[in-house]
Amino acid sequence: MKQRHLRLLLVLALVALAAVGLTACGSDDSKSDSTSTADGASTETTTTASDAGGAIVSNAANGKVTLTIGSKNFTEQKVLGEIYAQALQAAGYTVKKQLNLGDEQTALKTLKQGDIDAYPEYTGTALLSFFGVKTDALPHDPAAAYDEVKADFAKQDLVALPPTPFTSSNEVAVTQATAAKYGLKNISDLAKVADQLTLYGSPECRQRLDCLLGLQKTYGLKFKKFVPVDLSQRSKVLSGGQADVSIVFTTDPQNKRDKFVLLKDDKGMFPPYNSTLVVRKASFDKAGPDLATTIEAVNAKLDAAVVQELNARIDLDKETPEQAAGEYLKQFGFVK
């Protein structure tokens, strides 16, 4: 008898689920892409910020060009991919997305195989991971880093479009309390106390020159312990008190919210990490001039504050990358 009841309950739950699912799918079909709530509800008379280079103009000729935009598997990459995809769609291209490709090696391989036509990559990552540039030979000027990356990509029939204003570097972060306790401002200040501190970072951090390995080699730091955790835990372990030091990204919204202190890279270990959209040469030629123009236009407003906000809307407010990207394009007048 009891079992019967349970089963009945389950069936009911499933029916309810299916109903919700159906209605959800229904609304999806109607493709109300601009789920405009309160803010955009008024008529289309007001253009928000037409000073920002103006809206993207759709070129019907682009319709026959299909571009597949890729991205790696974390928040900032996904939102960048979405911004580019939506912007190119506004410019008239037929756009597909593959926004969860894994790490940079996977993304690059997918790009070279032609499964995607473009994905955003950070200049520093490209130099370290793709082009084998040693730490002591890394450029410290964003423009120089971009030029080097562009030349190296060109050898592989890839075009690196002009980079974003923001840079999203690895950062050595501590809480305000830790910084005050040990008097920490620069990474090198850690030297005398590192053996009392536990460092948390992603699993790959252990053996990367722009992470633990570099901190050991360049700064001579010997931490009490290194604990590998999923990349998504990087802020939580610090605010939660498990980590004394954690490796975070410049544009993490939690840095601001939790008032982390980002130690200054006083020995210049980290290269610039501006984002450049890397495009296959063949796709670049096929797409015509609107591709570069569109990307450069939407890149212009992507400074550190804006990207941090975009990350915040996804990581903290739990919007989807698609939503956040749409809001960005709308806010700055790229689309209506």
């Binding site: 840079t167 840095n255 890279d265 804006v306 941090q308 906000e309 700055f332």
Partner: peptide, 20 residues
């Protein structure tokens, strides 16, 4: 440090009402 790298504003300007 090279100015361009060191002077990246963490929160400051930009945004134009975009930042919540």
């Amino acid at each position: 440090m090279s100015g361009a790298l060191g002077s990246i504003p963490l929160l400051a300007q930009g945004g134009e009402g975009f930042v919540r």
